[in-house]
Write a protein that binds this DNA or RNA. Structure first.
Lengths: 227, 227
DNA sequence: GCCAAAATTGAACGATCGTTGAATACTAGT
DNA sequence: ACTAGTATTCAACGATCGTTCAATTTTGGC
């Protein structure tokens, strides 16, 4: 982290780590930090330690490279979250699942991935954080990649709170989405604000608080505005 | 001036609306939609209906123009929110203020500005939405512009919940910040997800739910983990 | 009406952008 | 060893980027 312009390569033994993957790694990191438009294909390839034209050989264009970065991890993400949800539902075959348990199934797999300091995932989540709050990319991309799973979670929440109006449910999910994705950005803002008490990277602290916070919000809104 | 390609100027009578302001308006809208790096100075000046070099005459550089866009509205924003907070505190000179009231003072002035379809503010808030979730810009900019006010709100929350650990308080504010700024982005994602039941632009619906949601979250976290 | 200051114009600068194509090196299967 | 396909290198393309500068027009105080 020395020097603003890092020529630092993604490294790893160049043989065990195929070029295609090295390009994706470098692109992921730079897109996450600076955004799609701010990053140059030449920057990416410098970091990947490969020639510029290889970006267009392995992927067709800068935009397609971006999509490849997105697609590389989205299936695994949706898979582990669905597993967590089904796990909760199996534990409650007779009775109702708690809202907090369902929320935890939604957030915990991601936060655990972030906690297990795999750099790769940190960058990917930071990228999602940016996309989610982007007026242009935000809607379409998040919808395409994650909303099938989200719809599944909302179904589960409907069962857990049958008296809740759908409109309330969707807005509450909106709040959840915002709170979760800001966490992914790790902007360091809370570090300053709290005078060092809190650390942006401390996913354990978030993991213990987020489900409680969000579940209470869901229940207050849904119960509060019932006719 | 004949045969100009109409990409939609910021218009208004060119006399009553000075060039400097027209540039700021155009920059605000484009930065908000596409992000700092994706926007071209030439795009901005085309929309502002002025020559490229005027951007560098009125502001020194693209980056300084960006800062000017930010600074133009930040004082007014902090002012109306501080007023709202002081209003709450005056109403409760003897007893404690409700957490929900304090949160409402934090969110309502912004949401009302967004509801009163002044396009100008819509763009500004969308810009904040992007910055807040940006790994590079996010921390420093938000800290500089808004954290003095935020610290003031957190003081008020401490008084409203004296038993609450500061660490919990800061994390809860983090969740609030994420939920609020995603709202600003108006990505249209919730429109799709809800099948049309919810609209990203419906600030009234958000305004009636957000304080309830967030206040319940604060109280659950702070009460739940008290020793 | 004069004149200095402020505002606007038009043209250009080097740098760098995304992208391409032709030539070369490497890696199988036979 | 030959070959076919895959992977990599090198050099370049037109376009457009942020920025500057000299010349011109407009403005406001006297």
């Amino acid at each position: 982290m020395i020097g603003r312009i890092d020529t630092g390569t993604v490294a790893m033994n160049r043989k065990s780590h195929p070029t295609r993957e090295r390009i994706l790694d470098a692109a992921e990191e730079l897109f996450a930090r600076d955004g799609f438009a701010a990053v140059t294909v030449r920057q990416i390839m410098r970091k990947a330690d490969a020639d510029v034209s290889l970006a267009y050989y392995h992927f067709k264009s800068k935009r397609d490279l971006f999509d490849a970065v997105m697609l590389r991890r989205v299936d695994h993400l949706n898979s582990i979250r669905l597993d967590a949800l089904e796990n909760v539902e199996q534990r409650h075959s007779g009775d109702r699942a708690t809202v907090e348990e369902i929320i935890a199934a939604f957030t915990q797999p991601l936060l655990e991935l972030l906690a297990s300091d795999h750099e790769e995932w940190r960058h990917y989540f930071a990228l999602i954080a940016q996309i989610n709050n982007s007026t242009e990319f935000g809607g379409p991309l998040m919808t395409r990649y994650f909303d099938p799973l989200v719809a599944r979670f909302i179904e589960a929440l409907k069962k857990a709170m049958p008296e809740c109006e759908p409109e309330d449910l969707y807005w509450c999910y909106h709040f959840l989405s915002g709170a979760l994705t800001l966490t992914f950005a790790e902007t360091g803002r809370i570090d300053n604000l709290s005078g060092g008490i809190c650390k942006s990277s401390d996913m354990t602290s978030i993991n213990t608080r987020m489900p409680t916070f969000i579940a209470a919000g869901f229940e207050a809104v849904c119960r509060g505005r019932r006719p």
